[in-house]
């Protein structure tokens, strides 16, 4: 029963994607701005990965600070520089998007 329901939901999901594709005419497909669409995905992926990177760096730094508070100046400096550089990676993506999307 569970397998059958999984199969039904899977087919429903596939049909949800399939119906708009079938409804599109030839002209609609030709006019799609793929650069804008892929730019959105690129920004989303860049933001998500940079967020993960910042979270990992912050978590590691906080753990190191809690273990060894005497090493605070070095850890704090490394964390600030790391966060600034990780943020700049998302900015690179934003700049490329602005350069490409007209």
């Amino acid at each position: 029963m569970r397998k059958t329901m999984s199969f039904v939901f899977l087919m429903l999901a596939v049909m949800c994607f399939a119906v708009p594709v079938l409804a599109q005419g030839e002209h609609a497909a030709a006019g799609t701005n793929w650069v804008a669409i892929t730019s959105g995905f690129a920004m989303a992926i860049a933001s998500a990965v940079c967020g993960l990177g910042q979270a990992k760096a912050t978590a590691a730094s906080v753990e190191a600070l809690a273990r060894n508070p005497a090493a605070r100046p070095g850890i704090q400096l490394a964390l600030i520089l790391g966060l600034a550089l990780i943020e700049s990676l998302a900015l690179y993506t934003l700049v490329i998007i602005f350069a490409k999307v007209k």
């Binding site: 912050t58 600070l65 809690a66 508070p69 605070r72 850890i75 704090q76 966060l83 600034a84």
Partner: peptide
């Protein structure tokens, strides 16, 4: 942005080390 980042990290470190 950099100044606020430094302030935020400093506050975070204060909280972790309880100083």
């Amino acid at each position: 942005n950099f100044y606020w980042l430094k302030q935020a990290v400093g506050a975070l470190a204060d909280r972790v080390t309880a100083t």
